[in-house]
Every structure is written in structure tokens, then in C-alpha cells.
Design a protein around this nucleic acid. Structure first.
Lengths: 220, 220
DNA sequence: AGCCGGCCCTGACGCGCCGTCAGGGCCGGC
DNA sequence: GCCGGCCCTGACGGCGCGTCAGGGCCGGCT
């Protein structure tokens, strides 16, 4: 929750110059090219030369702006994290009580799945890197999901305070709910191959979100 | 559920010979070396030469038994899948009714987390490959989780038949529960860095498994 | 207009790992 | 003690990475 959105970005790695207008445009084209390629190519098969050429520049230029491909993906992930903050409002604004609660769960599920879909290739790499113990990827994954988890934990805590002692750690419960959302979002395609229809998966997720958040049986 | 454990394994890739005793021993050492290295090295940083040398052999020999590193990891994953089948019994044997149901959920959670932990490095690669759309990794991931999902779906269907119409597709619901288990198992370390205590995460997962399977509010 | 300084780009190169192939060691049977 | 077949490996071409010195472009100043 720092004040500036980004610390003026990184200084140019190669020679410590501060990029001017033209430089920033090149950097942006490289980021977009990276995102593009990530949608059609497995991460390990990404070639710097392809990214650079598609951006109308050369590999050497790529290394002027990013230390390696990871750095470019991390930059994309930070942009995605910014975009993801609107999910938080969806949790905070909706009412989680009674019949409306299930609607809130459905809304959150839909918004989360859409969010993941918009940034799928990047988030895949973030997940993989984070799982492998890479600090940088872990940090950005936290940044992606932290506010949402905290807000859900607040809701869960409020439900407990309202009389229903669920006997759980709100943070742990929220984290598990968010993990379900992220897991299903990531594997939705796989579930489909498996014979699970997306609409059914969506409903099942929303039920789990509802149950996990309110401690109530979901409506049938 | 085929009769032979493995279809006599693959023929040797290099020259189509059927490996003899010595050859199989070398293959096994290569597999173990791969598993070993995977525990301390990010997948993309794996070097065939390191795997081979640690197994007391040469890179060329590695390629006699595996087309590439992926193939070795897939072989390890298939072994893990075999090991994972015992999770199914745990679901089938336990009673999911009443108070005992929550115990069944706890047992499944513990067994699943232990299972994932035992095979973590390999399963990480499987997840990543599957997410990237690689057919081979997807197939082995299905093999890993299919029986468990099917059994859970059976339990969910039975609960419905017993009068409580949950109004959901049992397969979708089971798939979401399994996804929660897999997601938390994969990210448990990350959750810990996040401030979630493992014991609390375990309880939260068990509650979600219980709620998702039986449609009941978990006990407090 | 002409010049100049600083911003930006890139060709070229050394390095390291991949994956292959021809050739040779080892071992058990006769 | 010899031989055939199983198994291993040194050596090599190819490719992508990451770096560096050098040069183009452009806007401002006189």
C-alpha cells in the first residue's frame, strides 16, 4: 500500500542511464512482445532473439532493459497485480449475508476467473517460479493475492464476531479459499479435458467460496 | 487399472534394444539422480551432464534411456502416480457420515499433504507442464488424481442420493475439492511465508474438504 | 544551416549446454 | 581363450545466451 505506484521503475540496467521517451517506448514494445510470445510458447522455449525481433529490435537491446526474461515477466506480473486490486472491492462491496452472500461468491468467482484468464501466461510463470522458491516470484504472487486474502479474512472474522464461531484462523481459511480460486483458475482447461463442464466448475467453486467464507451450507 | 504395472517400460530409445539387467540398473540410477537434483535445483537449471555425472555415467548414456529430461521426469511421475493410488482407499474406507466424516476429511488431508511432500519436486514439474498444455504431463496428472477424484465424486453422489440434493455435478465438486488439496499442498511453503501456520492451514483445508464432500457445515 | 552531445541501437563474439554418432570396453557362454 | 552382443563414452556441430565496443539518430544551440 505504498504511495507511488512504482518506484519510477528500474533504472536502465546496462549503463545506468534513465530511459527517455524513445527508450520507454522500446521497453514497452519488448514487454508486449514477451506477453505475446508467452501466449503461444512454453516458458522454457522462449527465445530472447524471437521476443526482440518481434518487437522490431535486437537481443542486445532487450538486455538494455531487462536482466533476463524473468525480469520482463516480473514486470508484466506487477502490472497484473495492479489490475487485480479491483477484485478486492468486489469482496468488500458485496454483502455476504443470507441469499445475497451466495451471489457475492458467484461474483467473486467470475471476476477471479476472468482476471486469471486475462493474465494467464504471466501468472503461470509466476506460479511456477514461486513454487520453486524464487523470492522475486513469490513476492509478486503475494502482491497479487495479498489484498484479496486480507479482505476475505476480514469478512470471515466479521462472520465469527457476529456469533458464529467457526473455530478457525480467518487468515488460514481465507488463504485456502484464495488457493482454491487460483488453482481452479489455473487448471480450468485441464478440468475441461477431464470432462468437467466450466459452468459446473464455476458453480462448485462458488459453493466452496461461500462455505469457506460464511461457514454456511451453500443454497441448492 | 491395467494388469501389468508398466507396459514392460519403453524400449531403449537410442537403438531399440531391450535393456538387460545392467542397463536397467543404470536407468534406475539416472532416475534417482534426476529426482535428487530436482530437489535442489529449479527445473530450468537442470543440466543433463550433472544428472549423468552424479549417476556415475555420461550424458550420452542418459540419452540412451530418455529422449530428454522431460521423459525422465515423466517416468518418475508415473511411479508417483502408482504410489498415490493408496489415497483412494483412504477415501473409500472412511465413513463420511456425521462426526466421523470430519475425521475422514482430516485423514485425507494429511495423507494428501504427505503424498505431495514426498513427490514435491516431480509434481511441481508435472503441474507446470500440464498448465502449459503439454499432453504428456496432463495425461500423467490425470493419472495421478483421477482415481481419487472419481472416488470422491462417488461419495458426493451417494450423499445426494441419501436425500440431500446438493444440486451440483458430483464430478465438478470433487474436482474442485481435489484442486484445493493440490493447490494448498503445492503452495504450503508459500502460505507459511505469508504468515499462515501449517496446522491452521491443515484444519482449514479439512473443513473445505468436508463441506465440499458432504454438503454439511464443518463442526467447530 | 551546421555542429555537437547524449540517447539509443546492434553486429559480432566467446561461452556453455544440447543431442548424436561412431567406435571401443566389458562380460558371460561355449 | 575367444567371440558376440550389450553397454558406455569421447568428440563434435549446433544453438541460444549475454556482453562490449562502436556507430547511428535526433534535438538543441549558435
Amino acid at each position: 500500500m505504498a504511495e507511488p505506484v512504482q518506484p519510477v521503475d528500474e533504472l536502465r540496467a546496462a549503463d545506468r542511464r534513465v530511459p527517455g521517451r524513445r527508450g520507454r517506448a522500446t521497453r514497452r514494445r519488448l514487454l508486449e512482445s514477451t506477453d505475446e510470445h508467452l501466449r503461444s510458447t512454453p516458458y522454457r522455449a522462449l527465445k530472447v532473439v524471437d521476443i526482440a525481433r518481434a518487437a522490431g529490435t535486437s537481443p542486445a537491446t532487450f538486455y538494455q532493459y531487462f536482466a533476463d526474461v524473468d525480469a520482463a515477466v516480473l514486470a508484466l506480473a506487477r502490472e497484473a497485480a495492479l489490475d487485480g486490486q479491483r477484485l478486492v472491492r468486489r469482496v468488500a462491496d458485496g454483502s455476504w449475508r443470507g441469499r445475497a452472500g451466495f451471489q457475492a461468491a458467484l461474483d467473486l468467482t467470475d471476476a477471479f476467473l476472468a482476471f486469471w484468464d486475462a493474465h494467464r501466461p504471466v501468472l503461470r510463470v509466476v506460479d511456477a517460479g514461486s513454487d520453486e522458491g524464487d523470492r522475486r516470484f513469490h513476492a509478486v504472487r503475494v502482491r497479487l493475492l495479498d489484498a484479496l486474502t486480507a479482505e476475505l479474512a476480514r469478512v470471515i472474522g466479521a462472520v465469527q464476531a457476529h456469533g458464529r464461531n467457526l473455530g478457525v484462523d480467518p487468515l488460514a481459511q481465507a488463504a485456502v479459499v484464495v488457493t482454491t480460486l487460483a488453482g481452479v483458475a489455473a487448471h480450468l482447461f485441464a478440468l475441461e479435458l477431464w470432462g468437467v463442464r466450466p459452468a459446473e466448475a464455476r458453480l462448485a467453486v462458488a459453493r466452496q467460496v461461500y462455505a469457506g467464507t460464511t461457514g454456511q451450507r451453500p443454497p441448492s
